[in-house]
Design a protein around this nucleic acid. Structure first.
Lengths: 264, 264
DNA sequence: CAGTGGTCTAGACCACACT
DNA sequence: GTGTGGTCTAGACCACTGC
């Protein structure tokens, strides 16, 4: 094998063709392999959220491929919002901790369509406790029943009107040390706090939406009359490697807001 | 100017730099211009839904650019589901008229997650009439109040259970000749019919979701008891050029199904 | 086999940001 | 000016499809 100066990783440079005599081939193009390697570095925390990753040329040298191949790998990462390209500056690890887009996963917007018209949300932590996962929570978080989990309940208000009631469950281990105090005092979104304080970056989520009527407690917290229909939004959010790290159940008032979704 | 054999269009081959002394530059890369030209041909119906568009090489010759540039243009069109690439065969205009993915825009799925477990939906047209657009419908469809529109009401049932009640409004002109008869007798989705019979291909849509309680008529049609919360899904669907061509208001039962959405 | 999309490369140049 | 990502090109080869 030619030249091997400051080796980092070698992509095993096997553009096409079979490897060993395995019965399940499943080859991937070089740029996919590179994408995988970058992804590994991302998970491993080699580059922190908000920081720049090496330039395309540097990565090309490091992985012994052409810049174009690195480019295609990064293109896919950028398409998945894992990374942000900025012309003339570099490519940066995406982060929730930037005031730009406040709630990246929140699809509830005011009926007038202008998110800025109502100012920042007021957040109130109602409860935060450690407990043992029941079967349902355990399944959603890929834990075992009885494992330690953190349960948080909070209310989000817009222009002083309580609009969202959320219950969320987090695996106990990665979030050791999270308290109502820290949640309340942190300035920024929850996901930003998770990133900064616990190194857990939420990357993807899936939501299941239903229409429900709230119980008495929920009515009180959202200040709605019994019988008011609400949106029930169950979200499972995960980090890199698709590992579920949060189960969140939201109740959304839709008298002044609506859930917006784009299809194509 | 060199060689001009069988001219179709010329992209004015102006990769970078300003054109005339206009005060608003706004230049776009070559591949964006090519994308625009392909888009025009798509709208103009030069290539019908389901049919193959010319090969990358052919388009490169036609537009006087390299294959790579055409490729990048097509990549974006494919990313937007306007076109489908099939290795070894060609690139095809996307269509709703293929049994593969039945309802491309329908996000309601059974709670067990398996769309195939319930078989095809039963469709029943309740009503179909021509009338004049009120202010609300006119605004949504970019028409004037009083313009002719078509109003359709239908119920979708899964495994015999009425699950979706939809009211939809279509601009009268492009859909001249649409009747309840044709809607009922057509085998395939509504959007497939629109494509095949009226040349209107729905490409993009935006949905606004709320929780509501149905009125007496709606309860009867969906066979639910008064007070049952339902999902209200308002959709505006549009063709190429972003022109709105359909306003659809759906009421979804979410006792056995849920609206699924992916975030990233 | 020929034709199509898919991958990979290498090099040139442009647009932008910072110093 | 230097370095970054962004565009464009030209050519080679691979993988899949259908004749």
């Amino acid at each position: 094998m030619p030249h091997s100066s400051t080796d980092h990783e070698a992509p095993a440079a096997e553009p096409h063709g079979a490897g060993a005599a395995g019965s399940a081939p499943a080859f991937s193009p070089l740029y996919q392999q590179i994408k995988g390697l970058i992804l590994q570095s991302l998970q491993a925390g080699e580059w922190k959220p908000g920081a720049a990753i090496p330039s395309e040329m540097d990565l090309a040298v490091r992985y012994r491929v052409s810049q174009g191949t690195v480019r295609k790998a990064i293109d896919e990462l950028a398409a998945g919002n894992l990374v942000v390209r900025r012309q003339g500056k570099g490519t940066f690890v995406a982060t929730h901790a930037e005031h730009q887009v406040q709630y990246r996963f929140l699809r509830l917007i005011p009926d007038n369509g202008d998110v800025n018209s109502e100012g920042p949300a007021q957040r109130e932590i109602i409860d935060c406790r450690r407990l043992r996962a029941n079967a349902e929570v355990a399944r959603a978080l890929a834990l075992r029943s009885g494992d330690a989990v953190l349960q948080v309940r909070r209310v989000l208000s817009f222009s002083g009107v309580p609009t969202i009631l959320e219950d969320l469950w987090l695996p106990g281990a990665p979030f050791k040390g999270l308290t109502a105090e820290r949640l309340s005092s942190y300035h920024g979104t929850m996901y930003a706090l998770f990133e900064v304080e616990f190194g857990v970056r939420m990357v993807r989520a899936e939501e299941h939406i239903r229409a429900v009527v709230p119980d008495a407690t929920q009515c009180a917290l959202l200040q709605v009359t019994p019988g008011t229909p609400l949106l029930s939004v169950e979200r499972i959010a995960s980090t890199y490697n698709q590992i579920p790290m949060e189960l969140r159940r939201g109740l959304y008032r839709t008298d002044t807001h609506h859930y917006r979704n784009e299809l194509n």
